[in-house]
Simulated assay, not measured.
Amino acid sequence: MASMSGKRLVIFGCGYVGSALARAAVAAGATVEALTRNPEKAAALRAAGLAKVVEADLAAPGWHPQIEGGADWVVNTVSSGGPDQYWQSYVVGMQSILSWAGRAGQQPVGTLVYTSSTSVYPQGEGAVVDETQWAHGATPNGRTISESEVLLKNAPETAVRRRYILRLAGIYGPGRHHLLDQLRAGATTLTGTGGHHLNLIHRDDIVAAILACLHAPATVGSEIFNVADLAPSRREEVVAWLCAQLGRPEPVFDGTTTARRGGAPMPDRIISSAKIQQELGWRPQFPDYRAGFRVLLDAAGRP
């Protein structure tokens, strides 16, 4: 990984992805500061060698004086905090960051990376979805995340010089693998159907995508990138492969609507990450679900 020595990185909403990024950046020599509302995560981040960890609600302005402005790099990896917290976490949280970044008398942020979601895309029916597609959400939650993207896109250069929006596919990785947990526990029935494609991305590949943005040459301006692995596969295929690895019989799908947050049916589509590969040279370490889950299975021990 490229050296980050002499650079100052601030990570907001420093949870599952942000913590992995923080550890990688500290190892690369960056001065890393973070904000989280979770005391346990704050303690773990301090133990990882971060220069400063602030425990606060991102959406409230009370933390603004505690973190100096003008950082070389800022990354917003906030999560919702619950089904009723989308607006507060994503929209009000982004407003808070931009207000902090644009305070009078300080330098603007050099580069800001925001980990958004492919839930902003309403497309289905097997469509291949790239960054040129309409992206205002099919659910209330998707529309909320889309609105937070608009805030960043429209931020003045007095607050942020360069900004990247990363629309992440379904996140999995160490400690985060719900489907694998269900099958390992011996589930005989899964809700929904198996015919739609799962668009997945491993946590470590997200970190690599963020770092690619932070290190992007000056010739690459503000952009939106999809971040997904290279081989979206149907849910039934993923389940069958995992069951074979676990030595368990395949469960049946109960045929109910597989709903995502916000209540809409799970869409069948293929998220394309060709743009970030072409423009930043990013390539996933785990190009498909087999590569990613095989490491998780080996780490946990085969049954």
Rank of each mutant, 00 (worst) to 15 (best):
S233M: 09
N199H: 14
T139V: 02
I145Q: 02
H197V: 07
R260E: 03
T258D: 06
Y16G: 09
W241I: 06
A104Y: 07
G263A: 03
R269H: 15
G175S: 09
L183C: 00
L190N: 05
L280V: 01
A185C: 04
T144I: 11
G110L: 04
A104I: 02
R283A: 11
V238P: 08
L230T: 12
P122L: 04
A138S: 10
A185Q: 10
L280H: 00
Q95M: 12
Q88P: 00
S233Q: 12
S119N: 11
P122T: 06
A47N: 09
T111V: 14
S273H: 08
P65N: 09
Y164C: 01
G69F: 06
P287M: 06
A34L: 14
D288N: 15
C243K: 00
Q85Y: 15
L45E: 08
T189F: 05
R37P: 01
A101F: 14
P65H: 10
A42E: 12
G15R: 12
R176A: 01
L242E: 03
S119R: 05
A127D: 09
V74E: 06
S119W: 01
Q107S: 12
N199R: 15
S116C: 11
Y289C: 00
T144G: 09
L112K: 10
V128S: 15
E125A: 14
N76E: 12
H178N: 09
F253K: 07
L280Q: 07
A71C: 11
A299S: 08
D298P: 01
I224E: 14
A2S: 11
D72C: 08
A231V: 06
G15C: 11
S117C: 13
Q133I: 03
T77E: 04
R269E: 09
L179H: 05
A25E: 02
F225Q: 00
R302A: 04
G13Y: 02
R163Q: 14
A60K: 01
S119G: 12
S146E: 00
Q123Y: 02
A135I: 11
Q285G: 08
A291N: 01
M1N: 07
W282E: 03
A218Y: 13
I276T: 05
G13L: 01
Y90I: 08
H178M: 13
Q106N: 04
N76W: 09
D288L: 12
Y90E: 01
G142H: 04
R176P: 09
V207R: 02
W73G: 01
W241H: 09
R261G: 12
L211N: 05
T219C: 08
D254M: 00
V160N: 05
T115A: 02
V32Q: 06
E223G: 01
T256D: 04
A231R: 08
R235V: 07
K7V: 04
M94W: 08
C213I: 01
R261V: 03
P217D: 11
S80Q: 03
N141Y: 09
A42W: 08
Q245K: 13
L242S: 02
D254P: 05
L166V: 13
G82E: 14
L200C: 15
E40C: 06
